[in-house]
Design a protein around this nucleic acid. Structure first.
Lengths: 282, 282
DNA sequence: CGTATGGTTGAACCATGTCAACTATAGTGG
DNA sequence: CCACTATAGTTGACATGGTTCAACCATACG
């Protein structure tokens, strides 16, 4: 049911280590997490992506995660063409913005290594996390419609982000039906992902939400070659709650409840799914 | 905040009459609503759109709502080009499906006259209305990602629907940057619309939700030249509840509460916004 | 005009939120 | 390296907004 983008990060047990192994070249130089910012009212510091900052060009062909963001059908020679739009990477540290609501829209983003959250902020300050993104999942689609971003995107950990200038991407699509259709699919899947989330918010109780959240994560890790059963959550209980429409205490209680039932085994952020079938039946 | 698609229909006071006046040629022959189907567990009857059914070709240039679904920048001669993809209309009666989850994806749809709801169905049968669409708002974007529709779209009243073959639309976009970007904007706005809904589901209480719902509707009617202050709701309290993540009793109570406060004036589906400023402050 | 559907309202109940105390963990500075 | 402090997570007791169940009213369609 929650069949598309969402998020957090990391691998089986070894915290960042598996992530490093998997996501190629640049990942292994990522610094480890820095002091966290508070979820709400965090300092609106400038993001490295919004200010001119040296970007590093890394050809997609060297990226172990390229199958996640560019069409697999693309022929080798087409990869050359992509070089204009793809392969510009930037680093962001934990807690930094990739973009902010109100920023002019210019780029889409994909984490090459790392993870992020997207936050919709109500005019009165109330916040809703609309998704967590992991390696290969797109960010920034919200900005196309109004030429301005409408939500914030914040790194959950130090990350390497591919910056894809949207004008150039559209230019590439013009004349490349495969790439064009691929972009449409990405956007459509984001729509479907949010529909599923709405379904959850409208109909599932707290226990079901937490179960669905874990199942969804598990699935996305598996698709990326990580363990589906054991992973490290990059987000806090408060962030999970903000995403699921629950308070952190409720999230915590549901983790405890699922643990008591023997469906999961957690120690803080370290999470193990013991019985995924029963978890699905919650 | 709820700045994009949503729905229901109709004009100021005269039920369908204004709608007829506004939406040009074909609208005035639409039959009035027929017996309603139940919201849940309604018969899965075949939709006229899914079976071969005579479609009527109506050039966009004759459509009073064309500014809502095709780019205004489009030059007159470009309209000729659109003829392949645009202008195929079909009629659906109230309660009939425009498409169903599981249907192969082939077309996008836009109501030329009428309105609809989109419903996500959980595997256990629980339903969530993810949006209401009125004249000029797109339907079917959910199908692009998987080549299958993932939700149901049901007419809220007898409607005239434009059927836009997606392959042909993509072909037209290939070589027309304006149209291509327009499509991207439409999809992006749908993403933003759902983000705003998620925000609502996660953070607003019942009263705030109902207020936000009415404000959003009001705005969309206004954009279409209808009265922002007075309109007829095409959906039931149960459907509103299903959309807002509330029970129909709660929706009803909130309508009564807002009425007692003098912010609105309702008699069943006939709705009048008395004090939109105070309604915004709820 | 009668029946079916939709809408309103009240009362009791319960899932989740709120408030608070406490524990665990991780990053910081001596 | 250890101790200190921040932040994160857990758990309990209580409050409450929204649901549930039920009765009743309104409206519209046949």
């Amino acid at each position: 049911m929650f069949n598309s983008a969402n998020t957090l990060s990391a691998g089986t047990q070894g915290y960042d280590n598996r992530l490093m192994t998997i996501s190629s070249d640049d990942a292994n130089t990522i610094e480890l997490p820095r002091p966290a910012l508070r979820l709400s009212f965090q300092t609106r510091e400038q993001s490295t992506l919004r200010n001119p900052v040296p970007s590093v060009k890394l050809a997609c062909s060297t990226c172990g995660s390229r199958h996640l963001c560019i069409p697999i059908e693309l022929k080798a020679d087409s990869h050359e063409k992509l070089n204009g739009a793809f392969g510009n990477t930037r680093r962001v540290k934990r807690g930094e913005a990739i973009y902010r609501a109100g920023d002019p829209f210019r780029n889409l983003y994909v984490a090459r290594a790392g993870s992020s959250k997207t936050i919709a902020v109500h005019h009165d300050g109330r916040e809703q996390i609309t998704g967590f993104q992991i390696t290969g999942e797109y960010l920034g689609l919200d900005g196309i419609g109004t030429d301005q971003h409408t939500i914030d995107a914040i790194a959950l950990e130090d990350s390497v982000i591919c910056v894809i200038p949207f004008k150039e991407l559209e230019a590439l699509c013009d004349g490349d039906k495969i790439l064009q259709h691929h972009l449409h699919k990405i956007m459509s899947r984001e729509i479907v992902r949010e529909s599923a989330l709405l379904m959850m918010m409208g109909n599932l109780n707290a226990e079901e939400r937490v179960a669905a959240f874990l199942i969804n994560l598990s699935q996305r890790f598996q698709e990326r070659g990580y363990s589906a059963a054991e992973f490290y959550l990059r987000m806090t209980r408060e962030e999970i709650g903000c995403y699921l429409g629950l308070k952190l205490e409720t999230v915590s209680r549901m983790f405890s409840k699922l643990q008591r039932q023997g469906l999961i085994d957690t120690h803080g952020k370290q999470t193990k799914i013991v019985d995924i079938e029963k978890l699905r039946q919650v």
